[in-house]
Design a protein around this nucleic acid. Structure first.
Lengths: 232, 232
DNA sequence: TCATTTATTATTGTATGCAATTTTTGCCAT
DNA sequence: ATGGCAAAAATTGCATACAATAATAAATGA
């Protein structure tokens, strides 16, 4: 009665969905990449039908754009969408922090600490580094036990990696790790106000790194590179 | 080159999706109703393939539950999910209010006023009354121009009608209309703090009507009916 | 040589067919 | 009647077939 090994929980279409999602988040598939039903199906050993189903789901999550008659591509959110997205993330993650502050169990604290350790360890690999940084937030959301909240934070975190891929400066995730540690400390202490402030600042700094250029105008971005070359 | 009349914008699967969604929100299809691919396809004049696609989308939105090998049913969120949902709604609609307060254009004010009028007019029909009450919130969200925010508020409002259908007391939407009016006034005045407070109170009262019974325990609900019958 | 048009090929949109699973029906024994 | 069991019907999961649309290559004429 054993299931096929590759069918890890829930229909095979879900497997395709997970695989593609992971590839997108890891930036193996970058924004704009074409996603032809045929080739994907062939590669994954399923028919177009199941690939299609997965693509529909991904499009509902905002990770994929479905252009009628023209095929699916990895979504390319605009800067404006990016800024809006982080605004929305802030609203939801504030709720996460408020819910969790002072209510973390020892097990949860351990899990979060361990995760932060892992983040530190993998500073080298850009791809996994970004993924782990995101997973810290989804891990927090998970602990609220609020199903809608979990779903939306997951979605927004996933889409954030698209924004980072498109507009993020290099090395953009470095300082985030210590901010995660600080946030955790405040959550443990039950200092809700400060925890919210930290989360706010944390997301702001991600936003600035990723998405602010348009407002500052391009010159600010360029100046960094200019001075690095001894110009300006 | 005219499209078929029934194909109003976007593929036919989207049409099926909209039709089912509307039916669910209007409570023509109540939580738990079976949604067989065959019958739906027959009724809508499309094949199972397209119905399936629509059902997948609906399940991603939390309106439909997809039970493997056992077919789709209209979702039956638990009381706990209901409470969580309203918590999440609050977090997002707070952002809506903060964004809009003091920034409504005359056109937007007109649109909102007109909508409130419509709500007043349709107090009689239970089904449309609920739908219009929901649409007031989605209309507000729409005006923020924040795409993620719009999507999530839409989803949560839609799912709220499921909660109402399952746990709401009769006549539960009556007082909401005046609260909408008050909120609009505060938004126009740019009184952000008070607007947030009103929205908070508004959603609280919906929550209480719909979802509190479990915390109060069932007796509180029953007592209302009991005294109406001269019992207790 | 380059623009434009026409074939050719690739890819999507949708229906349908078949195996697998679940639900229902009908039957029998208790 | 009623509980259990087997056969039948209905329903889902998935692949495939074919038409329709878009992308690409070839060919034609200036």
């Amino acid at each position: 009665m054993a299931k096929k090994a590759s069918d890890a929980g829930g229909g095979r279409s879900q497997a395709v969905h997970r695989a593609l999602k992971r590839a997108i988040i890891d930036q193996a598939l970058t924004p704009g990449s074409k996603l032809p039903e045929d080739s994907i199906g062939e590669r994954m050993g399923v028919s177009r039908t199941l690939v299609r189903e997965a693509l529909v789901r991904l499009s509902q999550e905002g990770l994929v754009e479905l252009r009628p008659n023209k095929g699916a591509v990895v979504a390319r959110p605009s800067l404006e969408e990016g800024r809006d997205l982080f605004l929305t993330r802030m609203a939801l993650e504030r709720l996460v922090v408020e819910t969790l502050s002072g209510n973390l169990t020892p097990d949860q604290i351990d899990a979060l600490s361990a995760h932060i350790e892992a983040e530190n360890a993998s500073r080298a690999q850009h791809a996994t580094s970004i993924r782990l940084a995101g997973e810290f937030h989804t891990l927090l959301a998970q602990m609220t036990n609020n199903s809608s909240l979990i779903r939306y934070v997951n979605e927004l975190v996933a889409r954030s990696s698209l924004i980072l891929a498109l507009y993020g400066r290099p090395h953009s995730s470095e300082c985030a790790v210590s901010e995660h540690r600080d946030l955790l400390d405040r959550l443990i202490a039950g200092d809700t106000a400060e925890a919210v402030a930290l989360m706010s600042h944390h997301l702001d700094s991600i936003t600035i790194r990723a998405v602010l250029p348009k407002e500052d105008d391009i010159r600010d971005v360029l100046s960094a590179y200019a001075s690095a070359e001894g110009l300006g």
